[in-house]
């Protein structure tokens, strides 16, 4: 029984880290992997999702719908930004760093001015359960399921829908896609919006478990970047396995040596992986296949 409860505990911890990495990274992965834009305002899309979700719950909407509303609003804001600002930067990926950093500054401080320094939380739903000696949060299991479901839905979108196929074509060979009559401008907007919506989804899902302040996005950004970089350009070949590997590294190190080791271990893992696999896991898997 002790062994079983220990095993469950490890799986729970790893799953929890996995969910956090996948959910915080997949929006960034879509935007970076598909469009080459380094979005330092990623955290602020998460913030947007979290705030909208929380307000919606306080207005009486049920949590799942509130979360979807958060994702939707973040997505719309993302599309708006793409239309007005981001589209001028496609040929200049490094400049996108500066611009999105500026946007992030505006969003964080703007939220502080408009909505105040903090927002009351809604509380985590669903309560807890016990395995062996330990109590666990049911909602964390929901987060794990949400991470897997998000990956599944993304896979369906990119392989089974017309938008997904056009998006991949546009990203790979834009001028040919355009010559074939694809509205590439719209595809770019939708892709950026999708990335922003995924960030908003992450914010909405984690909103009930966190402190809601204008700087809350920062808690996600480093982990998200690490996952995307280790993973490389492709969400399914890269981000998902990267999140799995990093989750094991982080959960293992954290339980063995404490939180600091978990944090530093994650960052060192990035440096090592990039040294061995300059194009991330995606590059590695594609090379193995070829």
């Amino acid at each position: 029984m002790d062994v079983l409860s220990g095993l469950f505990s490890f799986l729970y911890q790893t799953g929890d880290a996995f969910a956090f990495l996948v959910l915080s990274a997949c929006g960034l992965a879509v935007i970076f992997g598909m469009m080459g834009i380094i979005n330092l305002a990623h955290g602020e899309f998460i913030l947007c999702g979290a705030y909208v979700t929380t307000s919606a719950v306080q207005m009486g909407l049920p949590l799942p719908i509130a979360i979807l509303a958060g994702a939707l609003v973040a997505g719309l804001v993302g599309m708006l930004l793409e239309r007005t600002i981001i589209r001028h930067l496609y040929s200049r990926p490094l400049d996108s760093i500066v611009v999105t950093w500026g946007i992030s500054m505006i969003a964080t401080q703007g939220t502080l001015i408009l909505l105040g320094s903090t927002m009351p939380g809604t509380g985590t739903p669903f309560g807890s359960f016990t395995v062996g000696d330990y109590g666990y949060s049911v909602y964390r299991l929901v987060l794990m399921l949400a991470a897997v479901a998000t990956l599944a839905v993304l896979w369906l979108i990119f392989t089974r829908t017309r938008f997904g196929i056009l998006a991949r074509a546009t990203i790979q060979v834009p001028h040919i896609a355009e010559a074939l009559g694809v509205n590439t401008s719209l595809i770019y907007s939708l892709t950026f919006g999708l990335g922003a919506a995924l960030a908003g989804l992450c914010g909405g899902l984690y909103a009930p478990t966190m402190t809601l302040v204008p700087t809350m996005g920062a808690a996600f950004v480093v982990e998200a970047f690490v996952t995307v970089v280790v993973g490389g350009a492709d969400i399914f070949l890269g981000t998902a396995p990267a999140a799995a590997i990093l989750a094991v590294v982080k959960a293992g190190l954290t339980s063995w040596q404490g939180q600091l080791a978990g944090q530093i271990g994650l960052l060192v893992a990035v440096i090592v992986v990039i040294r061995i696999l300059p194009r991330g896991l995606t590059g590695f898997i594609l090379r193995e296949r070829a």
Binding site: D16, A17, D133, G135, Q259, L260, G262
Partner: peptide, 20 residues
Amino acid sequence: EEFIPLGVSQFSQTIQNIQK
């Protein structure tokens, strides 16, 4: 005794250590 780096927002492991 457990020390948490500033900026950490996820506490599953810490919670378990306490329960243990």
